[in-house]
Amino acid sequence: MRIGLITPEPGHPLLAATTALLAPDHAVEALDPVPLGDAPLPLPLADVYLLKSRTPHALDLARYLERHGAPVVNSAAATALCQDRTRMAELALRAALPFAATRTHASLSGWAASARLDAPVVVKSRLSRRGDLVGRVDDTARLRELAREWPHEPVVVQEYAPNSGWDHKLWAIGDQVFSALRRSELSPGGRGPTRPLPLAELPSGWASLVREVGAVFALDVYGVDIIDTGGGTPLIVDVNAFPGIRGQAGAPEALAALALRRAAERCEERAEERAEG
């Protein structure tokens, strides 16, 4: 099989470990997502591509490959949807997932000019990206301070749900779920270390909830951030397409198996197309 990696960082720990598993028997090649037309695509196309980048160039490349019949994990459409926190919330709530109620404002300064806060809220950039805005706001003074720093930023606003200060970081590769705890960036001490969390210690039903998120969002490799609002009651606060999943035993093996499975499915489809033609 030929497996393509759409990423500027093929040395990322998860990708590097997956490549090491695949390389003895399969061809693995990395495609640095640059503007289409600046570099020729290697031909023939790979049997499957893993999209480990969310830049506009990476999404354009993924769409191009999909139009030419190549399977991409995750699809460009699913990846792009997870970047837009408004669309993410709308889809999750329509599907009756326990997702945080979310309001959208065209600019932080525009909302801050008239906002009156009765309780703490979480303010996030509408577009998820590196270095985006994610912060807890307890009063109008803090809100207006943030508005001066991010005046034109489109934002989403969610009520702050009291919790332990630790996020449940859940990841899935296909049907396999991985879990850990990480101190929230909204906690008084800021983002902290990641702690191991055996899957068996998750509250009942949480692993199934993660798989349901994957089905709703059409994702194969993804992360779900959940907070426990008390007694094991989950509240989903974010969904990520193809996160790093660092340090999770079995994750490279699960990703290698998923890539080969998707590649084999595409090869079977091509064989059927040739037989019918």
Score class of each variant (00 low, 15 high):
residue 191 R to M: 13
residue 125 S to L: 05
residue 58 A to R: 01
residue 210 V to F: 09
residue 185 E to T: 14
residue 152 H to T: 14
residue 59 L to A: 07
residue 55 T to H: 09
residue 17 A to D: 13
residue 165 G to T: 13
residue 163 N to T: 05
residue 13 P to A: 10
residue 142 R to T: 14
residue 182 R to D: 07
residue 258 L to T: 07
residue 86 T to Q: 13
residue 167 D to G: 05
residue 241 A to R: 07
residue 93 L to K: 04
residue 132 D to K: 07
residue 39 A to S: 14
residue 45 L to I: 03
residue 246 R to Q: 10
residue 75 S to P: 02
residue 78 A to F: 01
residue 241 A to M: 04
residue 183 R to V: 13
residue 48 V to N: 07
residue 218 A to F: 08
residue 139 D to I: 08
residue 155 V to M: 04
residue 2 R to L: 01
residue 111 W to E: 11
residue 264 A to S: 15
residue 261 R to G: 13
residue 237 V to Y: 07
residue 9 E to H: 14
residue 16 A to F: 11
residue 36 L to C: 10
residue 36 L to H: 07
residue 266 R to T: 03
residue 150 W to V: 08
residue 184 S to F: 02
residue 157 V to L: 08
residue 207 A to Q: 03
residue 168 H to C: 09
residue 92 A to F: 07
residue 129 R to G: 05
residue 274 R to E: 15
residue 262 R to S: 07
residue 245 I to H: 00
residue 151 P to F: 09
residue 182 R to N: 10
residue 229 T to C: 05
residue 222 Y to M: 00
residue 21 L to I: 12
residue 213 V to N: 05
residue 276 E to T: 14
residue 272 E to T: 08
residue 93 L to F: 07
residue 141 A to P: 02
residue 207 A to K: 01
residue 178 F to Y: 10
residue 192 G to H: 06
residue 194 T to K: 12
residue 172 A to N: 00
residue 29 E to L: 14
residue 38 D to R: 11
residue 136 R to G: 10
residue 199 L to V: 14
residue 50 L to F: 13
residue 218 A to Q: 13
residue 116 R to N: 07
residue 73 V to G: 04
residue 197 L to C: 09
residue 92 A to N: 07
residue 214 G to Y: 05
residue 62 A to R: 07
residue 83 Q to A: 13
residue 11 G to C: 11
residue 111 W to M: 04
residue 210 V to I: 09
residue 197 L to T: 09
residue 194 T to S: 12
residue 45 L to C: 01
residue 87 R to I: 02
residue 82 C to S: 11
residue 242 F to R: 00
residue 187 S to M: 00
